[in-house]
Structures are given as structure tokens and as C-alpha cells.
Amino acid sequence: MSLDRSDVEKIAHLARLAISEEDIPGYTHNLSNILDLVAQMDAVDTSGVEPMAHPLDATQRLRADEVSETNQREAFQKIAPATEASLYLVPQVIE
């Protein structure tokens, strides 16, 4: 499976990753190699096999509906890159 430059650019955009121009050939090469490795999966016929999402065959435990968390805004916003008026700031969002 060989990716080209535009594939890599598309994926980088989907994953919101800035990749510099000069790094694109390197990523294109390595990602293609990884996909070649992954393509070995095709050797096995998996028709009729149930996909396994989880190692343990367990079901979801349910939590009682109780408020157990207290306000920790100060502690949480101390580690935030940009806040004002207790809000997290981001470049303007246009709807």
C-alpha cells in the first residue's frame, strides 16, 4: 500500500497535525512501509470471525447517579495555557 504526498497531507489534516514541507517525503515513505506491514493481515481469511473489541468478555458496570465531584476550577485552570473570566480561550469560533 503506497501513499502519496496528497494522502499524507489529507491524513495530517484529519489528525490536525502540522507537518513541514520537507518532512512530508519521510512520512510518506515510512507510512507506506507501515501499511505494507499491515497488509500482511490480508493473507488470512476472516469471514465468519467475530471482531474482538476487548480482551475480556465483560459488560459495562453502571455507576449510581450521584454527584461526587466538587468544583476544582482553580486547580484545573492553573495548568491551562489561556483562560479569562474562568473560560478557556481559543481563537474565534465562527459558526
Binding site: D65, E66, V67, S68, E69, Q72, Q77, S86
Partner: peptide, 24 residues
């Protein structure tokens, strides 16, 4: 519900900004 779907933070409406947003 009283608490959120995946955390124990309150769902009450109208609280001060980000006071009901827990780590989860």
C-alpha cells in the same frame, strides 16, 4: 440525571463557568 453520563460532576443548569467540569 443529577450527575453526568460518564462522571460524578453535577448537571445543574446555570452554574458559574467551568465549576461543574471535572477532570473526566
Amino acid at each position: 440525571t443529577k450527575s453526568k453520563i460518564f462522571s460524578g460532576a453535577s448537571t445543574a443548569y446555570g452554574a458559574e463557568p467551568n465549576t461543574q467540569a471535572c477532570a473526566v
